[in-house]
Simulated assay, not measured.
Amino acid sequence: MDQEILTRKQAMSALNIKDYRALNKLIKAGLPVIHAGSYVRFSKSDISEFLEKHKERGGEVTCK
């Protein structure tokens, strides 16, 4: 598997955010998450796709 898998901290760095609450809001807005037991991981390619998708919409991410 060539896909790069990131921890929460690495994902936050890739997203350029510093607060876990912001990460949780992005997850609620549709950021894909990989659950492996009690671990939460993120695919770097999924993060890139998520950002591209929201960039096309004018950069807005709405969280309910």
Rank of each mutant, 00 (worst) to 15 (best):
S38M: 04
S13R: 05
D19W: 01
S45I: 08
D2M: 06
E60N: 07
K9G: 00
V40C: 11
E60Y: 11
R41S: 08
C63M: 08
R8H: 05
I47Y: 04
M12D: 07
D19L: 03
L6I: 02
K9L: 12
S48K: 13
F50I: 06
D46T: 06
E60S: 04
E49L: 04
K55V: 12
Q3N: 15
I47V: 04
A22V: 06
P32S: 11
H35V: 11
E4P: 07
T62V: 11
Y20I: 07
G59V: 09
N24G: 13
L6E: 12
F42T: 03
Y39N: 14
T7R: 09
L6Y: 02
N24R: 04
A11P: 01
S38H: 13
I5Y: 00
K9V: 15
K55C: 05
F42Q: 11
I17C: 06
R21Y: 11
A14K: 12
K55G: 07
G59F: 05
R21S: 11
R21M: 02
R57F: 13
E52K: 11
K18H: 07
R21F: 08
H35T: 05
E49T: 15
I27P: 00
L26F: 10
R41C: 01
S48V: 05
L15C: 00
I17A: 06
R21P: 04
A22H: 13
M1S: 07
F42S: 03
K53F: 08
S48R: 09
E49A: 04
Q3G: 09
S38G: 15
K44W: 10
K64I: 15
K53L: 06
A11S: 02
L31Y: 09
I5V: 09
I47T: 07
Y39H: 10
L26S: 03
A22N: 15
L51W: 02
H54V: 07
M1F: 14
G58C: 10
N16D: 14
V33S: 01
A29C: 02
V61Q: 14
H35Y: 13
S13M: 09
E56F: 01
H54G: 09
A11E: 01
